Amino acid sequence: MPAGPGPSRRTVLGAAALTAVIALPALCGCSGDDPVRAAAPGLDVVVLSGAIAAEQDLIARYEAARAAHTSLAKRIDPAIAHHREHLGVLRRHYVPGSGRQATDAPATSTSPSPQRVPDVQAKALASLRTAEIQTAARYAADAGKSAPGLAQLLASIGACAAGHGASSTSGVAKKPMTQPSTASLPPARGFTLEALQAALASEHAAVYGYGVLGSRLSGGQYEVAQTYWNAHRVQRDSLMALLTARQAKPVAAAAAYRLPVRVTSTRTAAQLATRLEDDLTVAYVGLAGAQDAQLREQAARAAQESMTSAVRWRTTGDLPLTHPAFPGLPASALSPRPRPGH
C-alpha cells in the first residue's frame, strides 16, 4: 500500500460535495373507486409500519437488558436514546389514512413481545449487537423497496444501527457496488448523477487518505488498513463503471487532498480513517435517494459498512464511540409533511 504524498493543494474530502438532499416524499397512494384497492396500504406505509415495529422491539430489548444488568446502563443508554429518536421520526412520517390505507397501522399501537435477557452481561451485549445488525440489514433491503426519500431515512437509521451493532473487530468486509444485469442502463441525471459523483469523490479521497495513514501503521493494524485501502479501490472502480454505464463521465480524483487530520501517529491515523469512513457514510446515505431501486439498497448497505468501519477505527485509536442518531441526514428531512391518501 503506497504511503502517498502529504496533505496538499486540492480540495477537502469529496464527501463534503454532497450537501443537498431530496425532500422526503409524501406517503400516499393513488385514488380509486375500487374498494379492495382502496383498502390496500401503499408499499411505503407497509415498510414504515415495519420500521416502527422494529424500533419498538429494539427499545424493548435494550430496556430489558438495562433492567437485568443495571451496570450496563452507561454503555447502552446512548443506543436507547437513538432508537427513541428513530421511533419519533418514523411516527411523524406515518400518517393514518395515507397510502390507500383507511386505518392506523397495527405497528403503531401494538406492544413488543416480552424480551428474554441472557444472564451473562457479555452475552446480553452480544444479543443486542445481533439484533442491531439484523435490523440494519432489514433497513437496507427496505431501502430498495421504498420511495427515494424514505429510503434515505432508512439508510441513515440503518447506519446508526450498524454502528451500535459493530464490535472492535467489525468492518473489514466491504462489498463493492454492482450494476444491474441489464443490457442498457438509464442515463444518470439530476440527483442520482450528483449523488453517484459525490460517492465517487469520497472514495477517491478515501483511497488517497488510506495511502497516507498506512505509513504510520505496522503489523496487524497496517494489514487492516491495507484491506480497507484495497476495498475502497474496488468500490471506486465500481462507481466509475456505474457512471460510465449510465452515460456519465466519472469525476476524476484530485492529484492530492488537504486531509482533515495530520497523520503523525497510530492514533491520528485512526482519527483520519474515522473521518474518511464518516464522510463515506454521509455520501452513501445521500445516494440512497437515487431513483434506481437496486442502487438505493446498495447505497444503504455501503453506508452501514462505512459506519461499522468507523467504529472499528474509533476503537483502534481509543476515540469516543459516538455517532449521531441520523448520520448523513439533514435536519430538514426529519420533519416531513406527508398528506393523506385520496
Rank of each mutant, 00 (worst) to 15 (best):
M1D: 07
M1L: 08
A3E: 08
S8P: 15
R9F: 02
A15W: 07
A20I: 14
I22H: 00
I22Q: 07
L24F: 01
A26C: 13
G32K: 08
P41S: 15
P41N: 11
P41L: 15
V45F: 06
S49P: 10
G50Y: 13
I52L: 07
I52P: 12
A53R: 09
A53M: 06
E55I: 04
L58Y: 15
I59R: 10
A60V: 02
A67R: 01
H69C: 00
L72P: 05
A81E: 07
H82K: 10
H86T: 02
L87Y: 08
V89E: 00
L90N: 08
R92Q: 11
H93R: 12
H93Y: 15
Y94Q: 12
Y94W: 12
G97W: 12
G99S: 12
T103Y: 11
T103L: 09
A105K: 00
A105L: 07
A107T: 03
P112E: 15
S113N: 14
Q115G: 03
P118E: 11
D119C: 09
Q121M: 13
L125F: 07
T130N: 02
A131N: 09
A131E: 09
E132S: 02
Q134R: 05
T135N: 13
A136M: 00
A147G: 08
A147N: 10
L154F: 14
S156M: 14
I157R: 12
A161Y: 00
A162F: 02
H164C: 04
S167E: 10
S167F: 11
G171R: 03
K174G: 06
P176D: 07
M177W: 13
Q179G: 12
L185E: 06
A188M: 11
G190W: 04
T192P: 03
A198Q: 15
E203W: 11
H204R: 11
H204D: 04
H204S: 03
V207F: 03
G209C: 05
Y210K: 01
G211T: 10
G214E: 08
R216N: 11
S218I: 05
G219M: 09
G220T: 03
V224K: 04
V224Y: 02
A225D: 04
A225T: 01
Y228H: 07
Y228G: 04
Y228A: 01
W229A: 07
N230G: 01
V234Q: 11
L239F: 15
M240I: 03
L243I: 06
A245Y: 10
V251L: 10
A252W: 01
A256E: 10
A256D: 11
R258L: 04
P260R: 03
V261D: 00
R262T: 13
A269G: 14
A270I: 13
Q271K: 13
E277T: 10
D278I: 00
Y284L: 11
L287F: 03
L287Q: 06
A288N: 03
D292E: 15
D292Q: 12
Q294R: 12
L295S: 03
Q298L: 14
A299V: 08
R301L: 09
A302Q: 07
Q304S: 09
A310S: 15
A310E: 08
V311Q: 03
W313T: 05
T315A: 13
T322L: 01
T322E: 05
A325E: 10
P327T: 15
S335P: 01
R339S: 12
H342W: 00
